[in-house]
Write a protein that binds this DNA or RNA. Structure first.
Lengths: 348, 348
DNA sequence: CAAGAAAATGTAACCGGTTTCATAATCAAT
DNA sequence: ATTGATTATGAAACCGGTTACATTTTCTTG
């Protein structure tokens, strides 16, 4: 049984395809009478509009493409959610691709989406290469916006936040609590720009306070709880282990926390722990996690807003949203034991 | 600047559209020489294949639609991930819609996907209404598979597990630990079939052990940590509070756990706590959470497999995968205090 | 080299809509 | 009833590909 098309409807209603098309999209252009007849026939024949054909004819689609590193980290889910909510308001659907933190995959997905003729693209880019790629997409008239970072360009729209500053402020906070040996558990900062910026923020904070950087305190790993746990175990087995650890992702922090507990240590008495993202469960940990709040949901919404500005302006209106992050002080960080009152050692 | 089409390429290469089309999809049908020429021209003009036009002409698409309750719960993310991984193997992309546990939205999304002419649909259905809808979709030749449950039908493919049994087994386990007052924190079981099945599993276990069902011990709520926390607070403020609580979602359990700690109680000494789903963090909680493991990832993969069987067989081959759930015993459940050795009270 | 088979390419209809422009029908007002 | 404006509809080209079928080219081989 062939699917019903507007042609069929037209014939049955004794009108032309054009009229049926109008009946669907601009009913006010069709006489009451005709309209009713057409609608009745559509009902009775289970007509289903073909959005593919429509998109082709109209030369525009109502799908936006979204590329994120992974759907498995709930912090990205929040952004996705923000995007979907907002996109839906505009009548758009979202096609999601996971790059799995892989550059090749990311590029492949961009191409794929471009082939699908998405109305626009939102990318949580990985590297400088991503940016180049996006600039070229924009030139090829695929409206695109970057999120989760502040790319250094004025030709690309974005809704992001300052990864450097966010990591800086947390490190600074820990230093002010009088920590001198601050461990860092962080994602693959050689591959991912965002992670590198955070790493630099950490470094800069140390430097500003005149603290020497100790490479032994850095654990580079992937973004799972297991990684966090293993990373923390490594730090704890150091001859001179850190008094505070900054896990640059709450997921890592959670893994780290479990490692600490396994060792029978107390947070924050024996060791301070800080996270990054402020995902929902951060507040529910024991102790509640001090972390950096990323406005993931709002960022998603603004990314969509920026995207539609781009779309509606024929790629003219470039919007760049810089969102703030917040230090969320809970109970997982305190002054280092035995260091109370001691002033910070400086290396000059 | 107009986009380059195969027409343009054809003209430039001095061949027909058909040859260009072949060069793209079946290069082995094109002479080496011509092929090279065409490819060169495609390169130089930044030709981007139009998958929309292709899909229309070919009357099939390479997008599969996916409807889940919410992307925000990581347990669904696992299923999504499984689906995306598998779908990608087959060269398909995934369009994701969130129903937000709302029936209307779910139906709207199904229609939307049908209009988009998706190759197939994977639905984490909500209610009996969903099933009806899906049966009708299948009749309209939209290959569809249900997941996350075992619909009672033989005309629809699915990859799911037995929600009743899963909840039954956990409740049974708690009872065998000698708990008599078992609280239940559960999602909106009046609206969501899956939740209702679980509720019934709980009820059946009680009944089988001759324990009277106390409505005061049931908290019906949504699926966030806050809900779990509030729910647990309610249970703890009961005159006769439960000795064990079964939170039918790890997210709820985590909220519940924080409520328990807030009260200064110990798990499992003062109260036992069980979850459902076995999301990644369940093992990392303090104490590690006893829960029911749902094979979310595998389920996603099998759903895709079932879907492609359906697609490739012209909707003939119906596959029904019944997956097992496992009781994961960790440390959050123990015998009730002061009840040790006491035998179970029966109400006959 | 001729002839038949195999390989390469072209022609044109088609997928299911949209939209411009022209024409026909209706309406208001003189 | 006539005219001009307004509203409703139709005809046909178009969107960018695919594909069945026909035709041409190239390859084999006797």
């Amino acid at each position: 049984m062939k699917k019903t098309t507007i042609q069929d409807i037209a014939k049955a209603a004794g009108v032309s395809k054009a009229t049926v098309s109008r009946a669907i999209h601009s009913p006010q252009l069709v006489k009451r009478n005709t309209l009713n007849r057409i609608q009745l026939i559509m009902e009775s024949r289970d007509y289903v509009y073909d959005a593919v054909a429509g998109d082709l004819a109209r030369k525009k689609s109502s799908i936006i493409g979204l590329i994120i590193p992974t759907i498995k980290n709930s912090i990205f889910s929040s952004t996705v959610y923000g995007i979907q909510q907002k996109a839906e308001e505009y009548g758009y659907t979202t096609l999601i691709g996971n790059s799995n933190y892989d550059n090749e995959t990311e590029i492949r997905l961009m191409k794929l989406f471009q082939q699908r003729r998405v109305a626009g693209l939102i990318v949580t880019g990985l590297s400088a290469g991503s940016l180049k790629r996006i600039e070229s997409l924009v030139q090829q008239e695929v409206p695109s916006v970057v999120t989760w970072e502040l790319p250094d360009t004025d030709t690309v729209s974005f809704a992001g936040f300052d990864n450097f500053k966010a990591a800086y402020s947390m490190t600074d906070y820990l230093i002010r609590l009088k920590h001198l040996r601050i461990g860092l558990i962080i994602g693959p900062y050689t591959k991912i720009d965002r992670a590198r910026k955070r790493f630099e923020g950490y470094l800069a904070a140390l430097k500003n306070h005149g603290i020497v950087y100790d490479p032994d305190l850095i654990v580079e790993c992937n973004y799972t709880m297991i990684d966090g746990k293993e990373g923390m175990h490594r730090l704890l087995s150091l001859t001179e282990s850190p008094t505070a650890v900054f896990a640059v992702s709450d997921v890592l922090a959670m893994g780290a926390l479990s490692a600490i507990k396994e060792k029978g240590l107390n947070v924050p008495k024996d060791i301070s722990l800080a996270g990054f993202d402020d995902i929902e469960f951060a507040a529910f940990l024991d102790p509640p996690l001090t972390t950096v709040k990323i406005p993931a949901y709002e960022m998603g919404q603004l990314a969509v807003k920026a995207l539609f500005d781009l779309i509606n302006s024929g790629s003219k209106s470039i919007k760049q949203y810089r969102l703030n992050t917040d230090l969320i002080i809970r109970e997982s960080c305190g002054e280092p034991e035995g260091n109370k009152g001691k002033s910070i050692q400086r290396n000059e």
